[in-house]
Write a protein that binds this DNA or RNA. Structure first.
Lengths: 218, 218
DNA sequence: AATAGCAATATTGTCGACAATGAGTAAATA
DNA sequence: TATTTACTCATTGTCGACAATATTGCTATT
């Protein structure tokens, strides 16, 4: 799979801004001033506008006519909504993955889990961050449903990452999440679409509740 | 709910183009030439670009750097994928609607069904077109999940309509679809989220299969 | 002092021109 | 004749300036 790297100016600015927004160096809810960005990044306003439009496309930014663009607001309520959508879409992704992944892809998925099991120390948060995302991505791509892949990879997942980073969601749930992943992988291996969907939905519901608990404490 | 009408030039062009694409007067898969559109609609290329970007946002158009924008291609395979996503998202919408719709909204929903039942003659395709969409919209909005609403109303549904129009999907299934709607509404009225989701998923699966059968005949 | 209206300013929307890139064509070479 | 290469043309990307709109701050009036 050849990934076309950023050729155009707007591309670069888009990636820069997206990173800044996800990482929080541009705060959520803040306004994006075109002229200002234009001078700081040393490109024309047209480029900035183009980049902002692409940010709108992935739901990281909202724009009002004649008023301007703002980074989306983050809230506990918004996070719940996001996870409800994830539950629905990734459940379907798991179902389709059980039907459509090749034997090779399934083997790779299991190998990924084993390598994680080997390297991860209990209580370490590495797994949650990189490994978890990796696992979910493989299943999403394994669905082979382009519509689904686009919505999740280009739309939802940057928002998910934004919440993870800015709400500081790493923490425990490492080992339990690992087991959940294991069972999902097993269902896929058995080509049990029903079960794969159900387990994935439970997996996401669990982590939603886990997050909601944490937030209400703080 | 106050809907802000098209103020800006790009707005108008966006709506015009979207209509033309959905209705098929701009063919699926065809290229969008910026200069050409600019002269026919008598606006600058900037507003055309803006409009095209918004079409990209609702997945009706795809753009490649330095090459240009094309209307998405329609195919039987693409339609199946679309309906899988609908099944997943609208299932969740029905679940949430059962939890979140007000008593008033539920009453209105039932009244809508009754008025359809009164006016619709068997074999008439009116119901499929307007009534079906109306029913589904109410449930989507009833979910009260903004993320979900945006994805479906701004993204998926224009594509659905595009397939409906251009693949000529009206046909029968009127009366059976009506019954399915009735049972979904009942589940929502009883606040049975589980059942509402299940029935909605089945409803969409049925119509997917119905369409697939038709297409393979022709 | 509070508010309404108005003027000044800041910001976004739109425009036409130029630069950069891709696509198509014809000539040149093997 | 097939293939490569250089050139031309068509199309998209980027720019700075101007127009239209929203926001802000001031003044006047009650």
């Amino acid at each position: 799979m050849i990934s076309d790297q950023p050729i155009t100016s707007s591309d670069k600015i888009f990636y820069l801004l997206r990173n800044a927004i996800v990482e929080g160096s541009i705060k959520h809810g803040s306004k994006l001033n075109e002229a200002e960005l234009s001078t700081t990044y040393e490109v024309s306003r047209a480029v900035i506008r183009e980049a902002i439009n692409r940010l709108v496309t992935c739901h990281l930014v909202e724009r009002k006519a004649n008023v301007g663009a703002r980074v989306v607001e983050l809230s506990e309520h918004g996070l719940i909504e996001l996870y409800q959508v994830r539950e629905s879409l990734e459940g379907m992704a798991a179902r389709l993955a059980a039907q459509n992944m090749t034997q090779q892809e399934i083997a790779d998925l299991n190998q990924l889990l084993e390598s994680h099991f080997a390297t991860v120390k209990p209580g370490e948060s590495y797994y949650q961050e990189a490994g978890d995302v990796d696992f979910h991505y493989r299943i999403i791509l394994g669905s082979k449903n382009q519509q689904l892949i686009t919505i999740l990879v280009e739309g939802i997942y940057h928002l998910v990452r934004m919440y993870r980073v800015q709400f500081g969601m790493a923490g425990p749930r490492v080992t339990t999440a690992f087991d959940e992943h294991k069972y999902i992988a097993m269902a896929i291996k058995n080509r049990d679409a029903e079960l794969a969907e159900m387990l994935m939905r439970r997996h996401i519901t669990y982590s939603k509740n886990n997050i909601a608990d944490k937030l209400s404490q703080s």
